[in-house]
Amino acid sequence: MGRTDLLTSFLPLHLLLFDIIDTVRALGWSGAIDLLRNGITLGSLYALIALGYSMVYGILKLLNFAHGDVYMVGSFIGYGVLTALGGPLSPKLALTPLILLIFLAAMLGSGTLGVVIERFAYRPLRNAPRIAPLISALGVSFFLQNSVLLLFGAQHRLWDPFDLGGNPARGVPGPLTSPVFTVKGVPVTVAQVLVVSTAVALMVALTVLVARTRIGKAMRATAYDREAAAMMGIDVDRVISSTFFIGSVLAGGAGVMFGLYIGDTYHFMGFLAGLKAFTAAVVGGIGSIPGAMLGGLVVGLAEAYATGYVGGKWSDLVVFSLLVVVLLVRPTGLLGARAIHKV
C-alpha cells in the first residue's frame, strides 16, 4: 500500500472525527445533559438485568444466557396484565395501582420462571462439565424465545407510555412523559424518574438482602464454597433457587420498566438487551453486585453518548469495543476481585 493509499484509507476516520467534534459543538451542554439523562435511564435497566447474570455467575459460575429472555417474559407478563385491565388507552385502574400490579405480576412470574429454569435445565447438569449448562442456557434461551413467538406471534406490543393514564381522545398525554424537573433546560420525565428510582431501590434492597439477611449470608457462603456451605448445613439447592428467583425478579422488573419507558414488547427483545447486560456484568466485574450496577451505567452511558455524538449505527460497536478494552486492561472487570486459586 502506497503512502497516498494509506492516507486515503484513513480519510473516512478523519471525517468521522471532524463530524464528532462538530456534533459535540452543535449539541452543546444541553445535548450532553440530554445524553447523560438517557444513558443513566438505559444504564439502570441494563444494571438490573446484569445483576441476574452476576448473581448466578457468582454462585454457580454459570453464564445464564436465558436471562435476557426471562426479562422478555417479564415484559410480556406486564403487558398481559395491562391488557387484561383494559389496555394502555383505557385502563380500568388508576395509574399508580395499575403500575404496582403490573410490577408485582411480572416480577413474581419472572421469578417463578427463573426457579423453573434452574430446576429443570441447570440442576440436573450441576455436576456435568461446565460447557453442558452453558449449552443448556443457550437452549433455554431459544426455547423461551420461540415459545413466546409461537404462543403470541411476532407482533410488537405497544404500551403507549405517551398516552397511558391520559386522555388520548382529547389529545391529553399521560403523566409518564410529563417532566418532573429540568436540568439546564433538559426535562426529566416521570417515566425516567420512575425507572431510575425503582432500579436504585431494587439494587439497594438486593444489597441489603445479600449483606444483612440470613439468605444473603447463605448465598455468600455458597458462592464462596458450595461444598463447605453444604457441610455447614446450608440447603444449597434452596439457596441457588433463591438466587435464580431474585435475579429473575429483577429482570422481570426491568422488563416492565422498559415497557413503561419505551413501550415495546416483543419476542426478540431479550437477545440484544441480554447481550448488553452481560457486557455490563463483565465490564463491572462478573460476580460483583456493585460491579453489575456500575457496568450497567457505563454501558448505558457509552451507548447514549455513542448514539448522540457518533451516530446510531455506531452505538453497538462502541459498547462492545468497550468490553474488549476493559477486558484487556482489567480482565476481572472494573470492580471484580482477582480470584485466588488454591493449589
Binding site: N38, T307, G308
Partner: peptide
Amino acid sequence: VSQSVSDFSSLIVR
C-alpha cells in the same frame, strides 16, 4: 438506526 433499537431518545438528541 438499527431495526432492533426501541430507545430512540439519544438519536433524537441529534
